[in-house]
Amino acid sequence: MPPVSQPYARNTLLGPLRRAARVTFAAATVMAALAASAASATAGPAEERQGAGDREAVRYVALGDSFSSGPGIPEQTDVTCGRSARNYPSLIAAELGAVSFTDATCAGADTSHMTNPQETVPPQLDALEPDTTLVTLGIGGNDLDLTGILTRCVVLGQLAPYGAPCKTSYTLLGTDEIGSRIASTAPGVASVLAQIHDRSPQARVLVVGYPAIFPDDGTACRATVPLATGDFPWIRDKQKQLNSMLAQQAEERQDVYVDAYTPSVGHDVCKPAGVRWIEPGDTAEAAGFHPNAAGHRSTADAALATLTR
């Protein structure tokens, strides 16, 4: 993975997790061949994608965090934001033959960075124009502090490999701290959507969910990620809760929710190289705990399919 500037190095989801991992375990990862990873994604019908592109001259702006920017996926076009030329926004723009395309996605972004600078990176909403016709928004994970959650879960998983110590730490005295964070993020997502429509009233807006990080059936893979066995299904459930919130916010604005989770089931971080779409550590394919090129291809296909409805 090429050198990165300080903002990206600090904000990448893997950074703190990997530092904790070095102390507590040696993560063994196998590099997947990019061609094999790409072959595992199911492409949508070419004629349907072409039909979507023929409907209008597409002026596309992509907004979002590292799950949208594609950190570590060759080729990186912006190391500060971990932006790849093979991320799902770039794939969508190419498939639709967009007459203009601005990729404003940036690793570490949360809802506040839609309207405020992210260090030296301008507010993402500044990329919008009155004639923008398509916007994708993939945001919310950093509002929950996914880095902190995963780091804590790894440390607790080393101390107590069975049960769900991480879940317990976030649900003391009957509270649901992560659920509360998801609920408190919803108004921020709603505000971002409202401002997108204010700035680009002609735009069709797609709210993009997050792909499956851990197995959907709740099974553990402690040899790959040393969480406690009971914390694998708990994190899965919190991710589904986040996606449900995003879907609800899209529905309330009459925008479109893109389900990136369902197509990615069976391609989580626990699967071997060539099958997984989420990398368990930094590899030649992507930054750790982020989608690789095949994962972005799947998300792009899910988004493109919504444009033909």
Rank of each mutant, 00 (worst) to 15 (best):
4 V>G: 13
15 G>S: 15
19 R>H: 13
20 A>C: 10
26 A>K: 12
27 A>K: 09
38 A>H: 14
41 A>N: 11
42 T>I: 10
46 A>M: 09
49 R>K: 15
56 E>P: 06
57 A>R: 09
58 V>Q: 07
67 F>A: 10
67 F>R: 09
85 A>Q: 15
89 P>T: 12
105 T>H: 02
108 G>N: 09
110 D>M: 01
132 T>Y: 00
133 T>Q: 00
139 I>N: 03
140 G>T: 02
149 I>G: 05
153 C>F: 03
161 P>L: 08
164 A>H: 09
168 T>S: 14
169 S>E: 05
175 T>Q: 11
176 D>E: 02
181 R>A: 12
182 I>H: 01
187 P>D: 00
191 S>H: 12
192 V>D: 00
196 I>M: 07
197 H>Y: 06
200 S>I: 08
203 A>S: 08
211 P>W: 01
211 P>C: 05
218 G>M: 05
227 L>Y: 08
234 W>T: 08
248 Q>M: 01
250 A>T: 06
257 Y>L: 02
263 P>M: 01
271 K>F: 01
273 A>N: 02
276 R>H: 09
278 I>M: 11
283 T>P: 05
284 A>I: 13
289 F>M: 15
290 H>F: 04
291 P>L: 13
291 P>G: 12
293 A>H: 15
298 S>V: 09
298 S>D: 05
301 D>G: 06
304 L>W: 02
305 A>M: 12
305 A>T: 08
